[in-house]
């Protein structure tokens, strides 16, 4: 065989294997939507997505996914409040504040935390955090604290605030969206921190030099120069972090409490979408309505993360073009 032919053959085979990931992605999308189609067709898109009753094993069954979607939204919001500041703070610390030695120590540590098995995080939440919340924190917050407040005899504090604590800070079960969010935070911090750290490190040293030479202090330089210059990269970090939170399964499966109802308060239980799939798939008969409904949940999850990936890809593309457009 002529070497030209050989090279051509190699190129064709390498390229076709290169296309495999496109095919896999298309297959996943196609398969999910194919299996999900039936439930939306049978029950109607609006009824499935906004229906408030998820009773897949009742007779007749109900496939309203809204409680599951609301569960996901609730844990995502609650987690974001904690994970975004912590993750970005960690990144800023590593990239801008820590000295060389601390940096060399913390970076691999964050990486380790990123591949920490989430089943162990769920387990930790179950056996440590949940009991702390229900056996220890709840009595303090919903019994001792209101009593103390009542004894102050101050207006508002001894009445409204005390009642609020009595009613709302009682934690019936430690398995609730707060516990889930705490563990999800541990899951999301390293994801956000490592991407954000890359974005911060990519800010040219000359920007920092310019700022310091004008007599700015470190905090001002970080806040007014480094963060604005990396804001697109930081938003990608946040978006991908949120994607991780939404898709994380084992933690919400083990510690969110499992109730398929819309949570109204931070100590309510919930059944976020991934938890519903993981908990019910094993029992759903093949090709039953329940099976299709769970694929429907999966398809929605897929769609959400797909959109998040698109947005972050778009942002980082735009960001890159800015860096190239920079003339010097």
């Amino acid at each position: 065989m002529k070497w030209q032919t050989k090279e051509r053959l190699v190129e064709i085979s390498v390229s076709s294997i290169g296309l495999l990931s496109v095919i896999v992605l298309l297959l996943i999308g196609f398969f999910l939507f194919k299996e999900a189609f039936y439930i939306f067709y049978k029950e109607g898109v609006i009824r499935v997505i906004f229906g408030s009753q998820w009773y897949p094993t009742h007779e007749p069954p109900d496939f309203g996914m809204f409680p599951l979607i609301a569960g996901t939204i609730a844990v995502t919001l609650l987690t974001s409040i904690m994970a975004i500041p912590l993750g970005l703070g960690t990144a800023i610390y590593i990239a801008e504040v820590a000295n060389h030695k601390v940096k060399e120590f913390l970076k691999p540590l964050i990486e380790m935390l990123a591949s920490f098995p989430s089943v162990v995080l769920g387990f930790f939440g179950m056996v440590i955090i949940a009991p702390i919340l229900s056996n220890w924190l709840s009595p303090i917050l919903s019994e001792k604290l209101p009593e103390m407040l009542r004894n102050t005899n101050l207006p508002f504090i001894s009445t409204t605030l005390a009642d609020f604590c009595y009613d709302k800070l009682f934690i019936a079960s430690g398995l609730n969206i707060t516990t889930a969010s705490l563990m999800l935070t541990v899951r999301a911090i390293p994801v956000i921190a490592s991407i954000a750290e890359d974005a911060l490190t990519a800010v040219p040293r000359t920007y920092r030099e310019a700022s310091y030479s004008l007599g700015a202090d470190k905090w001002h330089t970080i806040w007014k120069v480094v963060i604005p210059a990396s804001v697109s990269g930081l938003s990608v970090a946040v978006i991908l972090g949120i994607g991780t939170i939404i898709g994380e399964t084992m933690i919400v499966l083990m510690v969110a409490g499992g109730a398929a109802v819309v949570p109204h308060w931070i100590f309510d239980a919930a059944r976020p979408m991934p938890a519903a799939i993981a908990a019910e798939m094993a029992e759903a008969p093949y090709k039953s309505l329940h099976y299709h409904a769970l694929f429907g949940v999966g398809a929605i999850l897929f769609l959400i993360t797909f959109v998040l990936s698109m947005i972050s890809d778009f942002i980082s593309r735009k960001y890159r073009s800015v860096r190239i457009g920079e003339k010097v």
Binding site: S15, G18, L19, S21, V22, V24, L25, L26, L27, I28, F31, L32, E35, L240, G243, I246, G247, E248, T249, P274, I277, A278, M281, L294, F295, G298, L301, F302, T305, F306, L308, S309, M310, D313
Partner: peptide, 27 residues
């Protein structure tokens, strides 16, 4: 072609692991 391969890899990286589970089950 390059663009779609890169996009696919990027998107696949963000797909939740439970969705891979569903796919594996079905296929």
């Amino acid at each position: 072609m390059l663009k779609s391969v890169m996009m696919s890899i990027y998107t696949l990286a963000g797909v939740p692991s439970v969705v891979f589970g569903l796919f594996g089950l079905g296929v």
